[in-house]
Design a protein around this nucleic acid. Structure first.
Lengths: 270, 270
DNA sequence: ATCTATTTGTGCGTATGTATG
DNA sequence: TCATACATACGCACAAATAGA
């Protein structure tokens, strides 16, 4: 005779009476909600019943409902706003594919090991197609470096490299014949502006006579062309680089791992 | 005279008296803890004081401490186990770089649009180098497909493609002259075994006479070679594919975004 | 423009369950 | 066996944001 709340909510709370004992209540609620969402009972963009409402429906406390909702929010299935409610964001628990690597220097590890030897350096005012490619207003100043990347003790360059650097950071690189770290990380460290996005485009080419000479490679042999664009806050591009890698000296490897959304959730057996 | 707990904990609780009002208490605690970790006060691998202990130290309830710890656990700075304690996992909030794209079909969108036209199909027992490359015991059966990927209404193939499929799933692909979806997703859908990891390797080559003929391209012209390995549960490889893309018909683009760890945290001003 | 009801967010108290050593 | 420490669950009170009257 202590609580009659459960009796009032038999319709839906029965869902939670799953055989699975030892599964936390809040996960059962979360699962029930997710199913309702998957079915389309709560369409994308719609508001869920209030936390209190859900609590009485399922016969659990508001705290438990909140835990369930929080769990689903971590998976980006739900979003919540004060004074408004809890909104359905997706029908499926978007399990994205993630990089197995954790830092840019790991991803572009070669840049950390291979120093950039500058053959040519010029300050330019971008115009026309180049301005468009750099998403820059014509007339803005950029620093243009051309050279090769080489590892110590190896006279064969890993790549022929061309870099465009936002004029604001030109002073960091002017006049130096060699750069030991990656350009973007030097900018990141000195300016404190973090890289928020990197776009990469990869294509193939055959080496021209000139490029082959710089790279000490065979003219007509295959090479990878990797173009990278680095963006800071506000989606502002501050560096672009073009790297030409002879195929026999470099290959590009990435590993994607699927995220396990509830890997670290205490509940549920492991 | 209601609570004297705060008085006993003046030493550390003062940390929380930051000017920042309107910042939730649990975030202040989290920040304090993170600082202690960053300093090395709580080294990696060590156990934090118990939740109750931290509560009295900072003059907050155990619930609030739990919220703070949970926040840091989401960032993989901490991990907790029943009956043991809360362990320090990292000193810095590992901000990884993530794919901007969310599903494999988006990432390899061409595969969804371009059907695989099979020119040759054979059941093989792998040996030697091939067995090693497939991480398979010699003598195991694999299905080997060779063909091209083409979009409808376009007679120029996007790629010449070679696929090795674990014998267990061979029945799904045997005898078909054309496959409209990506191989891995067909396997995923029919077997329920999810892809947990994809390794990709990208290199450049020039087209041989034979390949050029299959692709209706110029011999000696550049092409991208993309090798993909698909792993299921237990890091077991179940598919490998080699794709040769003429450079002028295909380029590989990826975008990495840095994760903002507390983007969706209700607290803190936005 | 103001007030008000609604809804989520924060904070704390308490009790009990359960894995660990 | 037993104390320890985190995990779950419920209760309550108030703050803050929002939308609508």
């Amino acid at each position: 005779m202590r609580k009659s709340a459960t009796a009032l909510a038999m319709t839906e709370s029965t869902i939670l009476k799953d055989a699975d004992t030892n599964v936390p209540l809040y996960l059962k609620v979360a699962r029930a909600l997710q199913q309702q969402i998957a079915i389309g009972e709560y369409p994308i963009g719609s508001l869920l019943p209030t936390e209190v409402e859900l609590g009485t429906r399922y016969g659990v406390s508001r705290q438990t409902v909140r835990q369930a909702i929080q769990f689903l929010r971590q998976q980006k299935l739900l979003s919540a706003k004060k004074g408004v409610g809890t909104r359905v964001e997706a029908r499926q628990p978007q399990r994205g594919y993630y990089f197995a690597l954790h830092s840019l220097t790991q991803i572009f590890q070669f840049a950390a090991e291979a120093a950039l030897h500058v053959d040519r350096e010029e300050e330019i005012e971008v115009r026309g197609a180049l301005a468009a490619e750099l998403a820059s207003r014509p007339g803005r100043k950029w620093l243009h470096l051309v050279g090769t990347r080489q590892t110590i003790g190896n006279d064969l360059p890993i790549s022929w490299t061309e870099v465009y650097i936002d004029g604001r950071y030109a002073r960091l690189f002017r006049g130096s014949k060699i750069h030991h770290s990656a350009i973007f990380s030097a900018i990141e460290n000195s300016s404190g502006e973090p890289v928020t996005e990197v776009q990469q485009e990869i294509n193939a080419t055959v080496l021209s006579k000139e490029l082959a000479a710089s790279l000490k490679a065979e003219p007509g042999s295959p090479a990878l062309v990797i173009t990278r664009r680095y963006f800071g806050a506000g989606h502002r591009l501050f560096e672009m680089s073009v790297n030409v890698h002879p195929a026999d000296r470099f290959s590009y490897a990435i590993s994607l791992k699927r995220e396990l959304t509830w890997e670290n959730e205490p509940g549920s057996k492991r």
